[in-house]
Design a binder for these strands. Structure first.
Lengths: 144, 144
DNA sequence: CAATATTAAGATAAAAAGGTCTTAAAATAC
DNA sequence: GTATTTTAAGACCTTTTTATCTTAATATTG
């Protein structure tokens, strides 16, 4: 469903949303260690997210990655668009080029219903809201 | 969700279920052409499915691939197990090693509900039944 | 039995995804 | 201003996935 890149990206952003502040940024090393993500690979992903203004960063002493208020108002779908593009989410589950309600594959309907629900959640929930939800329900982002 | 291999495989099997009979087998060339699947790649996939007794084949003149009654009684999930394994279907959407109801990732619940529905369909519907459903509702298997 | 049509099998190649390393650039602290 | 810490950028490597090609084996037809 998501590429490995995207999975790593989502987890990293949500972790930053929960743990980082303007005054306490988080470096790649720490992020990679706590989330069990290959360090250099994560660095690459964070670069892309930074360039696309999904996360913020600053170099030098006490630098690192963090989320501004602005960043927290972005919705989750943005992360996926940036890292995977949207095609991956919308393409037919059997790989057909045209698969819609009038030319449906045998699984279009059951899949479409789920997608509507799931993508609506990703579209409607901001990174900040997701972070809060994770905190409240003690959802998991790290490998145990 | 499914690998390209698996997408091709499902489409090919369902097409065979609809169009082939014991007396009128379908060659790789025809299958690949009608379904727009790379010929040699499809041949490989059909080999695997044959070896796992999901489809039947015979060589020589008027040979080709086809489904016996037995094959039509196999459920759809079998195709996925053979071509993709089950891990791909059950693994956490964020890639976490442990993600269950007690250690859930932020999207576990919404995804799990869909999976239950979808996989139940794949488990419970035989290839033959799927073929009939496709015929009845005129569902699509080819690229238009 | 010979010719032909077809799958089976395995080697190989190409492309994409995942992951690593090195150097540059920038910011900060002293 | 220099040393240090950190991200930025890009080159490079590895693995997996997707795709192709060639030859062998097998069945059928005449």
């Amino acid at each position: 469903m998501f590429s490995t890149t995207c999975k790593y990206g989502i987890r990293a952003v949500l972790y930053l949303a929960i743990k980082s502040t303007n005054d306490s940024k988080i470096g790649v090393d720490e992020l990679a260690d706590t989330l069990c993500i290959p360090k250099h690979f994560l660095a690459k992903i964070l670069q892309v997210l930074t360039k696309n203004k999904v996360v913020s960063s600053s170099k030098g002493r006490h630098g690192g990655f963090y989320l501004k208020k602005r960043n927290k108002q972005i919705n989750l779908m943005k992360i996926i668009e940036v890292l995977d593009g949207t095609n991956r989410l919308t393409c037919c589950i059997l790989g057909l080029e045209t698969c819609d309600s009038t030319h449906a594959c045998p699984y279009h309907n059951i899949v479409q219903q789920f997608r509507n629900d799931f993508y609506q959640k990703l579209e409607n929930e901001t990174i900040g809201e997701a972070a809060q939800r994770i905190d409240e329900h003690d959802f998991n982002l790290k490998n145990l």
